[in-house]
C-alpha cells in the first residue's frame, strides 16, 4: 500500500466529511435553536440538487446552478417552516419525527412527479474539472479539492456568523432562553424562519455540490440525512464544533474503512473471505464508531444537554 494511495484516500475522506458537515451544521443548528428534529433535511438536500441540475441544464452555468440551489432550498425551507414546522416547536419528538417524515413522502413523490424517476446529471464547469498535481506528485481531481475548500470556507463563515454578528448573538440567545430574547424585542418567529432557511440553504448547497460527482435522483437525501444524524450524535446535538469534528471523523472512518479494512483482514484470512468480511465491517464502521462514542459519552463529544 503506497503513501500516495493513503494521501488520496485521506483527501477523499476529508471531502466526504466536509460535505457531511454542510448537512450536519444545519441539522444541529435547527435542533440547538428550535429543539426540532428535522427528518426532512435530506429532502432539502435533494431539492438543492434538482434545482442546480435544472438550472445548469437550462443555462449551462455551474455558478448559476449553485446560486439556484442555495436560493431554492432556502425558499423551500422558509416555506415549510412557516406552514408546517412552526407548529411543531415544543411538541413531542414523536410528532416532529412523524410530521417531517410526512414531508419527506410529499417532497420525494412530488419531485418524482415533476422530474421523473430517472437520475439527472449535473456537469462541472471546465475550469473546475480535471486533475491538479499536489506537492509530492499526487494527481487529485480539482473539483474534489474545491469541495474541501468550499466546505471549510462555509464552516468558517458559519462560525463568524454565529460568534461575531448581531444575528449570531440572537441565535445563541435563542438557544438559551427564548422568552427572554422575545421580551427584549427580537422577533423570534422571524429568527426561527431565518435559522431554518440558513440550514436549508446549506443542505441545498451540499446537494448541488455532491450532485455533480454523483447522480441527482429522488431518494438521494435520505442516506446522507442518516449519516448527518450519526455525525451530530457523535458530535453532540446542538454543537456546531461537534458537527465539524464528527463530520470529519465519520467521513474519514467511512472512506478509509472501505479501503483498508479488507486489506487488514487479508493479513490473516484468505483474500475472498477477507474482502467479504472487511467490506461488511466497513459498511458498519461508522455505526460502530457511534455506539462506542455513545457508550463513552451518552450526549456526544461536545453535547451539553440530553
Amino acid at each position: 500500500m503506497s503513501t500516495l494511495l493513503i494521501i488520496e484516500q485521506v483527501l477523499n475522506g476529508l471531502q466526504f466529511g466536509v460535505m457531511l458537515f454542510l448537512m450536519a451544521a444545519g441539522l444541529t443548528l435547527i435542533f440547538g435553536v428550535m429543539g426540532l428534529i428535522n427528518l426532512a433535511h435530506g429532502s432539502l438536500y435533494m431539492i438543492g440538487a434538482f434545482a442546480a441540475a435544472a438550472v445548469a441544464g437550462a443555462t449551462g452555468s455551474f455558478v448559476l446552478a449553485l446560486g439556484a440551489a442555495l436560493a431554492v432550498a432556502a425558499i423551500a425551507g422558509a416555506l415549510i417552516e412557516m406552514t408546517v414546522i412552526r407548529r411543531l416547536y415544543g411538541k413531542a419528538h414523536l410528532d416532529q419525527v412523524l410530521a417531517t417524515f410526512a414531508l419527506i413522502l410529499i417532497f420525494s413523490e412530488g419531485t418524482r412527479w415533476l422530474f421523473g424517476s430517472f437520475p439527472l446529471f449535473l456537469d462541472i464547469s471546465d475550469y473546475l474539472s480535471g486533475p491538479v498535481t499536489l506537492p509530492g506528485g499526487i494527481q487529485y481531481p480539482l473539483y474534489r479539492l474545491t469541495l474541501i475548500a468550499v466546505g471549510l470556507l462555509v464552516g468558517l463563515g458559519l462560525w463568524l456568523l454565529i460568534e461575531r454578528t448581531r444575528i449570531g448573538i440572537q441565535i445563541r440567545a435563542g438557544e438559551n432562553d427564548r422568552e427572554m430574547i422575545a421580551a427584549l424585542g427580537v422577533d423570534i418567529r422571524l429568527l426561527y424562519t431565518l435559522v431554518f432557511a440558513i440550514g436549508a440553504a446549506l443542505a441545498g448547497l451540499a446537494g448541488a455540490l455532491v450532485g455533480a460527482i454523483q447522480s441527482v435522483q429522488v431518494g438521494m437525501g435520505e442516506p446522507v440525512l442518516i449519516l448527518a444524524f450519526v455525525v451530530i450524535v457523535i458530535g453532540g446535538i446542538g454543537s456546531i464544533k461537534g458537527a465539524f469534528i464528527g463530520a470529519l471523523l465519520v467521513g474519514l472512518t467511512d472512506t478509509l474503512g472501505g479501503i483498508f479494512l479488507p486489506e487488514l483482514f487479508k493479513l490473516f484470512m484468505e483474500p475472498g473471505a477477507a474482502t467479504q468480511t472487511g467490506s461488511a465491517l466497513a459498511s458498519m464502521a461508522i455505526y460502530i464508531l457511534m455506539s462506542l462514542v455513545l457508550i463513552w459519552r451518552p450526549t456526544g463529544l461536545f453535547g451539553a444537554r440530553a
Binding site: 435542533f31 428534529i37 419528538h93 444524524f229 450524535v233
Partner: peptide, 9 residues
Amino acid sequence: VYFIMITLA
C-alpha cells in the same frame, strides 16, 4: 432525540 437517532443508526 439521541434514542431516536441511535435506534435509527
